[in-house]
């Protein structure tokens, strides 16, 4: 018996010329949510699929709840559940039929399988839609039935692969509530996401993954602290003023300001906060109108940029997420 939920050493998966997962070492404790954060194509899903025994590693080893994913794959399957883009339900069947099928496959007999299916449908707010084909479900309902299918027996470890991708904010909050309920019950959740605020909200610890490698690991606060003690966000009222504002800020604070895809914004990491008031006055004196002037912890977006040298997401996805 081990205290670790997941333990890997040099875990690797190669597809052709691409090292989809390139030597990952993980030691993830039981309990809570562990976030796997990275952009599309970073290798999150490939890593999760190896851990859930769906594909076999090309090199390295992995233990899930103390069982080897290759040699004791069947034992691992008995302890974990998987929900995600690649582990879904049958769209042609109704919600109830899907849950009954999974229940039967876990060994529930006819009546017990139906009772278990109905209990989950009720809990996930799907009782009204129980006899509708899943292909007619909304995005949020679809995600709920996917998660419900993973909870037909209580797994010790649940893999959630991008559980909120494509959901509207309300449906996303519902999924977050479900995840928090699972954690409160003692289930370990391993969550992959490309949304920085999702990892921030849910995950106790975060592994940042990029191009198949883990590039940072820690709590959200630790990751932010690694970038600097604070970040100054300035947004000018008129985009034409940005260059002038930047010159003043650089002069007063002695640090370099970065521009982002927002044409009005300026961002800089600060080690020393003492000159901030002076800088604000200087901007006022120069008649530069400000929409925002804030000093705070860096966002995970900035952390990602600092760690990888490139942004986590395309601007369009940013906008979608902010909606």
């Amino acid at each position: 018996m081990t205290d670790l939920a997941i333990e890997t050493a040099g875990l690797t998966k190669v597809y052709g010329d691409t090292r989809a997962v390139d030597g990952i070492d993980l030691a993830i404790a039981r309990g809570g949510v562990h976030g796997f954060l990275g952009p599309n194509g970073a290798g999150k899903t490939t890593a999760i699929r190896m851990l859930a025994t769906l594909i076999r590693p090309d090199a390295g080893s992995a233990k899930v709840l103390g069982r080897d994913v290759v040699r004791e794959a069947d034992a691992v399957r008995g302890l974990v559940s998987l929900t995600g883009q690649f582990a879904s339900v049958d769209e042609d069947l109704t919600g109830r039929e899907n849950l009954r099928l999974i229940a039967k496959l876990y060994g529930f007999r006819g009546g017990a399988a139906t009772r278990r299916a109905d209990e989950l449908l009720e809990a996930f707010g799907l009782a009204d839609a129980a006899d509708r084909q899943v292909k007619k479900y909304s995005g949020g309902m679809r995600r709920r039935i996917d998660i419900a299918a993973s909870l037909v027996v209580s797994p010790e470890l649940l893999f959630l692969d991008e559980p909120t991708t494509g959901l509207d904010p309300r449906a996303r909050n519902e999924v977050w509530d479900i995840i928090r309920a699972l954690v409160a019950h003692g289930t370990t959740v391993m969550l992959t996401t490309q949304y920085l605020d999702e990892a921030d909200q849910l995950a106790d610890r975060i592994s940042v993954i990029d191009r198949g490698r883990i590039i940072a690991e820690g709590t959200s606060s630790e990751l932010k602290a690694s970038v600097g003690s604070g970040t100054l966000h300035v947004r000018v009222m008129h985009r034409d003023d940005r260059d002038a504002a930047r010159a003043i800020l650089v002069r007063e604070l002695g640090v370099d300001f970065e521009t982002t895809h927002d044409p009005q914004a300026l961002v800089a990491g600060l080690e020393d906060r003492s000159g901030v008031t002076r800088a604000l006055t200087a901007l006022e004196d120069a008649d530069i109108g400000l929409a925002q002037f804030s000093l705070g912890q860096p966002t995970l977006d900035e952390v990602f940029l600092a760690l990888t040298g490139h942004a986590a997401e395309e601007p369009t996805q940013d906008a979608e997420e902010a909606a």
Partner: peptide, 30 residues
Amino acid sequence: PRAPQVDAIASALTSVERPPRPSALSASMS
């Protein structure tokens, strides 16, 4: 009726007892 109910989910997690594994035949029939 439409939103997931966190309390009910929590109780659904604890109420279940894992049945014995189905036989190969029974799984195939499912």
